[in-house]
Design a protein around this nucleic acid. Structure first.
Length: 224
DNA sequence: AGTTGATCATGA
DNA sequence: TCATGATCAACT
């Protein structure tokens, strides 16, 4: 990175910066940052998110917390098509599969990550070269009472299955708005989980993801 | 191995 | 065509 912007000191500063990148292509933004855009994302899948972290001044290296911890804001890019529809699900956080006693919705990672999100929609159509993909208008979002309830219901259903040792029965088809899917370097990665009868088993690491139907609603509300 | 940033690619 | 399951890279 040639220019990692300083951390925005307040919400106003963050939103001003975000507004200034709207309409730029990833190529134009990358030039400002002094980096090159990959021809495709077959290898650098998280490149766009990292470019935005760089340009908006997200606290780099500070993992397992919000991108702008002092502001309580999480940054998320979301690929959209010409009509503004999400092209991918949205990763939320890693799912802990053991030591889950005492974790409730109100103090869980999913709820905390999504308290306040700065969404940055970006044209993600694959027939457009990454350098030509245009950044749409970023906006701040917090879950509505209904959205919180929707996520909570899915989360509780998934966590109950995990707690009951049924992780291997969970597929991405569970959950209406929040789903659980593999999240690892490859299929060989393993982590501890609760198995049948409370034994510890090894399974593929998982992560929580927002379904497109959920993020579509967020986008619709934001631009309505 | 865990966790962040995500998109890819194949089967249905 | 599309979502699920798999995968890639960086950093700790």
């Amino acid at each position: 990175m040639l220019s990692h912007n300083s951390e925005p000191q307040n919400l106003n500063e963050l939103m001003t910066r975000a507004a200034q990148i709207a309409g730029l292509t990833l190529g134009e933004l990358a030039t400002k940052a002094g980096i090159k855009v990959p021809a495709n994302f077959k290898r650098e899948k998280g490149w766009t998110g990292q470019l935005l972290e760089l340009c908006l001044g997200a606290s780099a290296g500070s993992k397992s917390q919000q991108d702008f911890a002092h502001l309580g804001i999480e940054l998320k890019t979301i690929p959209i098509d010409m009509r503004g529809k999400p092209l991918e699900t949205t990763y939320v956080c890693y799912a802990h599969l053991t030591h889950i006693a005492g974790i409730e919705w109100h103090n869980c990672n999913v709820k905390n990550k999504l308290k306040q999100v700065l969404w940055v929609p970006i044209d993600g159509r694959r027939d457009i070269a990454p350098k030509d993909r245009i950044i749409a208008t970023p906006f701040l979002w917090s879950p509505s009472v209904l959205q919180d309830q929707q996520l909570r219901q899915d989360w509780e259903e998934l966590m109950e299955l995990i707690a009951l040792g049924k992780i291997e029965n969970i597929t991405a088809r569970h959950g209406q708005f929040l789903q659980l899917r593999p999240k690892a370097a490859d299929g060989r990665a393993l982590t501890d989980a609760i198995g049948p009868n409370g034994t510890i088993i090894q399974t593929r690491p998982r992560g929580f993801y927002l379904r497109k139907e959920f993020t579509q609603q967020i986008l619709t509300d934001a631009f309505r």
